[in-house]
C-alpha cells in the first residue's frame, strides 16, 4: 500500500512539478532560438488562399473562442482574489461561467471545422503537416477536457482561482506546491497536463505565430520607407573623409 502511494507521488511530482519546468524552459529557449536562427518560419501559414469557404467557420470561431478562454484563465491566474469576489454574487458567477462555456463551445466547433476542412479539401491537405495534426489533436483534447470539466466540476472559475492559481504561483516561485493539484479530479489533471504538452510543443509548431501578432500596426504611420544608409549623413564631409 505504502509502496503504491509512493509511486503515485512520483507520478504527481513528474507531471506537476517537473513537466511544467521542462515545458516552460523548452518554450523560452526554443522560441528565442528559432526566432533568431529560423525567423523566416514565423508565419501564420494561412491556407485561406487555398480553401476559402469552410475557413471562415473554422478559424473565426476557434480564435475568438480560444482567446476568450485564454483571457479568462489568465485573469484567474493573475487576480484570483478579484475573480472570487466577483463570483460572490451568483448572477455574476453565472455570467462568467456561461461566457467561458460559450467560448469553449466556439473553440470546439471551430476546431472540428478545421479538422473537417483539412480532411476533405484536397488543397488544404497539401499544406497540412504532421505537426499540424499533432497540434490540432492536443488542442481538441485540451478544449474537450476543458468543456467536460465545466460540465462535471462546475464553478471552475472559483476553484481555479482558489487552488490552481496558487499552484501556478508556487511554480513561478520555484517551490512547486503540488498539494494544490493532487486532490483534483482526473479530468482536471489531464487538462493541466495536456496544457503543459501544448506549451512544450508550441515552439516546434505553427503555434509560434501567436507570438508575432501585429501590435506595431496600431501606432505606426501608414507608410514605411527604409533607407539603406542615412541619406543626409552620407553627404556630410566627414563621411567623404572616412572613405578615403
Amino acid at each position: 500500500m505504502a509502496q503504491n502511494t509512493n509511486i503515485l507521488d512520483y507520478f504527481n511530482l513528474f507531471w506537476f512539478a517537473v513537466l511544467p519546468y521542462v515545458a516552460l524552459f523548452t518554450f523560452l529557449l526554443v522560441t528565442i532560438q528559432r526566432y533568431r536562427r529560423r525567423g523566416f518560419t514565423y508565419s501564420s501559414l494561412s491556407s485561406q488562399f487555398l480553401e476559402n469557404k469552410i475557413h471562415f467557420w473554422g478559424l473565426v470561431p476557434f480564435h475568438y473562442g480560444i482567446l476568450t478562454i485564454l483571457f479568462g484563465h489568465f485573469l484567474g491566474f493573475l487576480i484570483p482574489r478579484q475573480v472570487i469576489l466577483w463570483n460572490n454574487d451568483p448572477l455574476r458567477l453565472h455570467i462568467l461561467e456561461v461566457t467561458a462555456f460559450i467560448g469553449g463551445i466556439f473553440a470546439l466547433v471551430g476546431l472540428l471545422n478545421i479538422v473537417i476542412r483539412r480532411l476533405v479539401d484536397p488543397r488544404a491537405k497539401v499544406v497540412t503537416s504532421t505537426a499540424d495534426w499533432v497540434v490540432i489533436s492536443i488542442l481538441l483534447f485540451q478544449v474537450g477536457t476543458g468543456l467536460l470539466v465545466a460540465v462535471f466540476n462546475s464553478w471552475g472559475s472559483s476553484w481555479y482561482a482558489a487552488s490552481i492559481s496558487p499552484y501556478f504561483w508556487s511554480l513561478l516561485a520555484f517551490s512547486p506546491d503540488i498539494a494544490f493539484v493532487t486532490p483534483m479530479p482526473l479530468l482536471v489533471k489531464l487538462h493541466i497536463i495536456s496544457a503543459y504538452f501544448l506549451i512544450l510543443l508550441f515552439p516546434f509548431t505553427r503555434l509560434v505565430h501567436a507570438l508575432v501578432v501585429p501590435n506595431p500596426y496600431l501606432w505606426r504611420k501608414p507608410q514605411l520607407v527604409r533607407w539603406y544608409w542615412d541619406r543626409r549623413k552620407i553627404r556630410t564631409p566627414e563621411f567623404k573623409v572616412k572613405r578615403k
Binding site: V212, P214, P216, Y217, R220, P222, Q223, L224, V225, R226, W227, Y228, R231
Partner: peptide, 19 residues
C-alpha cells in the same frame, strides 16, 4: 507613391526603398 499594400501590412514587412 501611396502604396495601399505598405499601409495595410500589420507586421510592417512591406516598405518602400528610400533610394
Amino acid at each position: 507613391l501611396n502604396p495601399a499594400c505598405v499601409a495595410s501590412c500589420p507586421s510592417g514587412a512591406l516598405y518602400k526603398r528610400g533610394e
